[in-house]
């Protein structure tokens, strides 16, 4: 029987190391299946978050062969099986144990965003073409892979200055809701740190839902802020874009 060699990071905030496990291959198997095999047959205490195993809940994020991914979505037969497959916790957030990280920061930030605010006399008529922009962002399953890969959070650890791509689309979702009346531009420019994003599109590349985070959310938000506040840097940027 052919096997996959899985090198899984095991450890906690004190440190850790890779452990190698041999897992028998089955057709269509995904990385999360291999992790479950390890739990059931080698190390029952291997810590993994997961829920739906169908790429709908965004719980099982990890870095597979260095690539931020949903482990339920990566089929083993798409990876080079002649070498070991490495599975590491997402790097941007503090490790709790093994593949489980402390993502509570995201929940704290989320609370700071002003929720949907309709006008008191709204009649709730909305047309499909008007809701589609926000619907795209509402596909987000909160896997936080975009937060993981964003260099402002990952390499520069600016968590207290930048909300990150996930929260940018959250804010865009409200801002572009056809019946929302709140104004989040001041927050976007200020504590949310929209200006930090320099459009490298890493977030868009890893999004398992295929949301156009940069093009459809962050850039339009930047344009809205520029229109209101005339931020010189973004102003130059918008000139570039128009040319």
């Amino acid at each position: 029987m052919s096997v996959a060699r899985m090198r899984v990071y095991r450890g906690d905030s004190e440190g850790g190391r890779e452990m190698e496990y041999e897992v028998p291959l089955e057709e269509g198997m995904v990385v999360l299946d291999a992790l479950h095999f390890i739990q059931a047959n080698y190390d029952g205490d291997l810590a993994v978050r997961w829920n739906c195993k169908a790429a709908k809940c965004g719980s099982c994020s990890a870095e597979v062969n260095g690539m931020p991914s949903l482990t339920c979505k990566i089929r083993l037969d798409t990876l080079p099986l002649h070498q070991p497959i490495t599975v590491y916790p997402i790097k941007t957030f503090p490790i709790i144990k093994d593949l489980v990280t402390d993502v509570s920061w995201n929940y704290e930030v989320r609370k700071k965003i002003q929720p949907f605010t309709p006008a008191p006399d709204t009649d709730w008529t909305m047309y499909q073409e008007d809701v589609e922009r926000s619907q795209e962002f509402r596909k987000c399953i909160e896997c936080f892979l975009c937060q993981d890969v964003c260099h402002i959070l990952r390499n520069h650890d600016k968590k207290n200055e930048f909300f990150g791509p996930r929260m940018m689309i959250k804010m865009a979702e409200f801002e572009m809701h056809p019946l929302d009346t709140a104004d989040r531009k001041e927050q976007l420019r200020g504590e949310a740190g929209l200006g930090y994003c320099n459009i490298t599109k890493c977030c868009t590349e890893v999004c398992p839902e295929g949301i156009h985070i940069t093009d459809n959310a962050i850039i339009p938000l930047k344009e809205r802020v520029v229109d209101t506040y005339f931020d010189p840097l973004s102003w130059i940027f918008s000139k570039f874009k128009k040319n």
């Binding site: 739990q39 291997l46 093994d98 489980v100």
Partner: peptide, 14 residues
Amino acid sequence: KIEGSRMFNPGWHL
């Protein structure tokens, strides 16, 4: 029977 500590231990939870 389970192994490991009580920290995030899926075997124990099970």
